[in-house]
């Protein structure tokens, strides 16, 4: 290990927390929320790679790769949905989609 695993994990934790904060704070912009999610997923990838390195096993890297692939699928669909909804409501403010409640 180049650095103690804990440092890698702390870095991942910080990234994850930043991503989460982004998601929470940017309720007015779906795109920024998606970006926050991407940040969180990156943290997950970092952990997986760190683990892979720690144990000298490939599984973590495969996992990271799969997360990446999955994310790209998710993002494309999410953005399609954003476009689809924007067409209807002319907004990307997540909180404005509140026709259902209670």
């Amino acid at each position: 290990m180049i650095v103690p695993l804990a440092h890698v994990l702390i870095l991942a934790g910080i990234i994850f927390a930043l991503g989460l904060a982004c998601v929470i704070a940017w309720r007015t912009n779906v795109i920024m929320m998606l970006i926050g999610i991407e940040i969180m997923l990156n943290a997950a990838m970092l952990v997986a790679v760190g683990g892979s390195r720690l144990w000298g096993a490939t599984d973590g890297q495969v996992f990271a790769l799969m997360i990446m692939a999955m994310t790209s699928a998710e993002v494309s669909l999410a953005l399609a949905l954003v476009v689809y909804l924007h067409r209807r409501k002319k907004t990307v403010n997540a909180d404005e989609f509140d026709s259902m409640k209670g």
Partner: peptide
């Protein structure tokens, strides 16, 4: 993201 992060940590 939570699940992924969690599984990565477990791993």
């Amino acid at each position: 993201a939570f699940v992924g992060f969690g599984i990565a940590l477990i791993y």
